[in-house]
């Protein structure tokens, strides 16, 4: 097996025990700075950094590739990894045909594969669970309405890039509907599609609000940027008191350190942005590398591992993302 020829180094970490070190490749979907991933505000750089940080205390040498959302590049990267004789290849690429070729190349070289968010042949898959994330958001909105607006007219609104291909945001939206209807089975839910442009929120929501002067709104925002745009639009329309928002992603635009004063912050508990369902793309490395190590050690791993999505609010944001700017 070619993987067995990988460099064996003595581990300097820990208590000085000698341990096999592995070379693990991560081929990122894209590292283009402005491109966000999975319908969240996270970028490829966030993912890459999470692998670099997670690898610090593991017997792993990371090798990074950028698939550039390009099928040829994805295949070329896999070939480079074969030439480098990596032990395991983590593939994050959306195209099924390219993934199939990548799988063939790696398998021929005896290199194990772990897939991220998109299947690669029958390799173990680590993936976001958009449907479940949506359910968590819908459930939070439903609970809020039950606590706060009992007996009042309530409608649901889904806002975001609802028809985006590849991001599976539509699953997220379906989850919000399901979660909301657990609490309000007959609730009317309207979809407002921004087609990926949060700047559209003001116009879309303005019309919608004008037609519903006496209704309380439960807003499922598909991402954090959209949630902030919805909040601004509601404030501009003087309707902030009539709405509650839950978003998806929990990217750095909505939370930060003690001094950042972001929207989801323990000091901002009155915000109409109740919370955001965390997708933890900035922690993928911490979740995925332990799976990779188990595979490399010959231990069984489940065919599909999903992100443990969680609703993060002002009450738990510093538990989930401890700040380091103490003040």
């Amino acid at each position: 097996m070619a993987g067995a020829a990988a460099v064996v180094l003595l581990a300097a970490a820990g208590a000085g025990a000698q341990e096999r070190r592995y070379t693990v490749a991560f081929a990122n979907l894209t590292e283009e700075p402005t491109v966000t991933l999975e319908g969240t505000g996270f970028t490829g750089r966030d993912l890459r950094e999470s692998f670099a940080l997670a690898a610090r205390r593991l017997p792993v040498e990371m090798v990074f590739y950028d698939n550039e959302r390009n099928n040829r590049r994805a295949v070329a990267n896999a070939e480079a990894a074969v030439a480098r004789r990596v032990d395991l290849y983590i593939q994050y690429h959306a195209d099924a045909a390219a993934n199939s070729i990548v799988a063939d190349r790696l398998r021929a070289a005896g290199i194990r594969i772990l897939a991220v968010n998109y299947p690669v042949a029958d390799a173990p898959l680590y993936t976001a669970d958009n449907l479940e994330a949506g359910r968590i958001a819908g459930d939070a909105l439903g609970r809020f309405a039950a606590r706060t607006w009992r007996g009042q007219a309530v409608e649901g609104v889904l806002v975001g890039s609802l028809t985006a291909n590849g991001d599976r945001v539509s699953e997220r939206a379906r989850g919000v509907e399901e979660g909301l209807r657990r609490h309000r089975p007959g609730v009317r839910i309207t979809a407002l599609d921004t087609h990926g442009n949060p700047a559209q929120v003001g116009a879309l929501l303005g019309k919608f609000l004008a037609a519903r002067p006496a209704v309380k709104l439960l807003v499922g925002a598909m991402d954090d940027a959209t949630a902030l745009a919805v909040k601004n639009a509601l404030e501009a329309a003087g309707r902030a008191a009539d709405a509650a928002i839950v978003s998806h992603g929990l990217d750095h635009s909505v939370h930060g350190g003690v001094n950042d004063r972001k929207e989801i912050d323990p000091a901002n508990r009155g915000s109409i942005v109740i919370g955001s369902v965390a997708f933890y793309l900035d922690r993928y490395g911490y979740e995925i590398l332990p799976l990779a190590l188990r595979m490399l050690r010959g231990e069984p791993v489940p065919p599909r591992t999903v992100t443990a999505h969680r609703l993060v609010t002002a009450a738990n944001v510093f538990l989930e993302y401890p700040p380091s700017d103490m003040n």
Binding site: L53, R56, R57, D282, F318, L319, P322, P323, S324
Partner: peptide, 15 residues
């Protein structure tokens, strides 16, 4: 400014 590594080894732990 903190003696300990930042970012920490476990992102869910604070200092």
């Amino acid at each position: 400014w903190a003696v300990e590594v930042i970012p920490g080894e476990d992102p869910k732990e604070a200092f």
